[in-house]
Design a protein around this nucleic acid. Structure first.
Lengths: 331, 331
DNA sequence: ACCCCGTATGATTGCGCAAACATCACGATC
DNA sequence: GATCGTGATGTTTGCGCAATCATACGGGGT
């Protein structure tokens, strides 16, 4: 910066003003400075700026996974919304989802580099409370609403999505709907299972035993093999807690000669890109990760302006996408 | 830090030493300081540390996409390897892959916050050269080897992977292999197409016209519909440049009553999780994104130590995974 | 002609930390 | 017993920038 100032024949402070786009700089002066910047190849030092201003221009994102599709899409949306708001993203992955590790990651990011924190909490933590500095804007997504009463939450309308899926199947004459749940460690999986139960209860339908997977197509395949090997009269519809398990389950049914949807209807959750192109095309509940991401950023920006006031949970609507994997009940 | 020093009855410098884990501090003193840190709730300020040391403890990652599976897995691997090396990840997405935008993103990250840069270049840029500060460690992945002769490159063994896939099909008696390519903007797509051509040439097989998709299952579906509607005697094997297009293509063939693999064999590229669980299970070339990620980080660490000396391109091996979507040529 | 105020610019200071050097005490060595 | 080395600690300084205050200039109002 000193070099630029010398070359342009102005003070360092004026260079700073130009670099920050202040208006109170003469046109001619600004041009001189900009030219000098280009000549010198000046790049402002973010650390020094952060030290002087107390702002980092970055949000931290804590996630247990990046490659799981939902997480990837959420992160992408957060990154895009953050960039548009002038913030960069500091991504921190936590290998094992214990509250201690998450709190450590938070501490790490918090003191260090960020103006706010998005926690993609995907999995239930072992301890109820997170240690978060009181002044750090924070938002939690992909978590039980009740888990963190003190922090703002953004999440998909799990209950509404599941209700639509189950009602869709019941409306087509299925007497009940089986369920392949996500892992017990996932709060989203819990919510979907509860909502499935509730929807069946409301309709007066029997509630079959839950099969449990781990989100992977492999686990859906296994669940499908188990279901196929203990044939039951009322197995005509299955709601899988995500699309990948639904895909695996469909492969198992194919292998066992169970036709979809003639014998059994299958519905997933997420609407991943492939859902439309597997065979048969998968009926599913579309999550709007783009909205989730931008709401997270918006929530952080509001906290930066106004502090962590009590905010309502933000629920992101879903949409049932009906394709060929679901149809009328047989007979 | 001053508060901690006062409370512990030592100098600020000693607190700094404890915070940085230096060994030359007396046990008793260290304990006093650690206690004081806990009492005060001390968190070192990353910006100040970076300013003083000139190191940020972070790598920048520039990517055009986060949610595309390969990118997501690469980013996850980079994040994990970086964390293990004590670095965090500053993620920057670039919406439109022009050299100008990428250079701007680089400038943004470079001066600002990072000790090194991973560019996941996925798409061919409009201008040949990137503007990268001469002192910034950098590594480019997912790009043409020849594009950036001056920078270290890490990439999958595209040629080897394609060769294995094509040879696998030819060895089963197919007279030739059709190809659904990735988008013209992708260097990986180019490489795979060239390798496919070369493999056919080597075998003396005819080279059918290339169909082009955009990596999505939807585009694979369209390509499949087109292929299915112009039936040809020699259409008995298709190599798709990624798994998602292969999945879409298989749906199209299902719809048109073309059996896989009895009528047509299909091979993909990537080995995404679902590949094993679509119907039929997809033969594909497994990319090792985990290795790519850790090699990227390793390359950066070496540059930090020894400067940007000329490094050989690092080629990551692949593996052909044979499943049920490929079989002997009909008749 | 005077003052006042707004605009453009410069000078000083401190953000929180670690590098570099200085100091001190103590034990080993000849 | 003088010298040296080693480990533990303190003091000074500067990293690069923006906040703050200070200064200079010029035009409009009275």
């Amino acid at each position: 910066m000193a070099d630029v100032a010398k070359l342009a024949g102005v003070s360092a402070q004026t260079v700073s003003r130009v670099a920050n786009g202040r208006t109170n700089v003469d046109h001619a002066t600004r041009d001189k400075v900009l030219t000098a910047m280009r000549v010198v190849g000046y790049q402002p030092n973010g650390a020094a700026r952060a030290l002087a201003t107390g702002r980092f221009g970055a949000f931290g994102v804590i996630s247990f996974s990046v490659s799981r599709i939902g997480d990837a899409r959420t992160i992408e949306a957060i990154a895009t919304a953050s960039r548009d708001a002038g913030f960069s993203i500091n991504l921190m992955t936590v290998e094992r989802p214990t509250a201690g590790r998450v709190s450590a990651a938070i501490a790490n990011l918090a003191g260090q580099n960020v103006d706010g924190l998005v926690i993609i909490q995907a999995e239930i933590l072992d301890a109820p409370s997170l240690v978060i500095g009181p002044d750090l804007p924070v938002v939690i997504t992909d978590t039980y609403p009740s888990t963190h009463p003190d922090y703002p939450i953004v999440d998909t309308d799990q209950e509404g999505g599941v209700r639509r899926a189950v009602d869709h199947l019941l409306a087509m004459g299925h007497r009940t709907v089986w369920h392949v749940a996500g892992p017990a460690t996932s709060s989203a999986a819990h919510e979907r299972t509860s909502a499935w139960q509730a929807a069946l209860h409301r309709a007066g339908a029997p509630v079959p035993a839950v099969r449990r997977g781990d989100w992977s197509a492999a686990s859906g395949y296994q669940a499908g093999m188990v279901l196929a090997s203990e044939p039951r009269e009322d197995l005509t519809a299955v709601f899988c807690a995500n699309d990948q398990m639904a895909i695996g389950l469909m492969r198992a049914f194919h292998e066992r000669g169970i036709r979809i949807p003639e014998d059994v209807s299958v519905v997933g959750f997420d609407d991943i890109d492939e859902a439309e192109y597997v065979w048969p095309p998968l009926t599913t509940v579309r999550q709007r990760f783009d909205i989730i991401g931008s709401l997270c950023v918006q929530t952080l920006l509001e906290q930066i302006d106004r502090g962590r006031e009590s905010q309502p949970m933000r629920v992101v609507p879903v949409e049932l996408v009906v394709r060929d994997s679901s149809g009328p009940a047989p007979r």
